[in-house]
């Protein structure tokens, strides 16, 4: 049966959620943070004396490197979860699947961020 709601009622839908700006703003802030962090990461890894386990852990044990690495990990996974959410909202039209996918992505990003931060701390504190 044809939809008997008026076109205006369909277009208005459930109205405005009053959100989205926070998401947009956080995505920009993390993007800005990632510019220097990624440049720093690439240059300092390239400047390592050797690409082996010992030199990487020694590098990551320096407090300056450990702090920036943790900042980079948090920014990367925060940015990734925001970005992947947009991709899912864009391309997954079935609402149930979309919601489940967003939850999985968010939790996975959270878990990976914690794993990364924990790893850096473990290396830096040398236990």
């Amino acid at each position: 049966m044809a939809n008997l709601r008026t076109p205006l009622s369909v277009a208005k839908g459930r109205g405005s959620s009053g959100s989205g700006t926070e998401h947009f703003w956080h995505q920009r802030i993390t993007a800005v943070a990632l510019v220097p962090l990624v440049i720093w990461f690439c240059f300092s890894v390239a400047a390592l004396p050797a690409m082996d386990h010992a030199s990487i852990t020694a590098w990551l044990s320096a407090p300056f490197n450990a702090i920036l690495m943790i900042a980079a990990i948090i920014a990367i996974f925060f940015h990734a979860s925001l970005g992947l959410q947009v991709v899912l909202e864009d391309y997954v039209s079935q609402h149930g699947i979309r919601t489940i996918a967003i939850i999985v992505v968010k939790l996975l990003c959270f878990l990976l961020a914690i794993t990364g931060v924990f790893s850096v701390i473990k290396i830096a504190l040398g236990s």
Binding site: G20, T21, F24
Partner: peptide, 14 residues
């Protein structure tokens, strides 16, 4: 501004 502040109404613009 309230009316367009929505992840879909406005922020689908990439």
């Amino acid at each position: 501004l309230d009316e367009v502040e929505d992840p879909f109404k406005l922020y689908r613009c990439h």
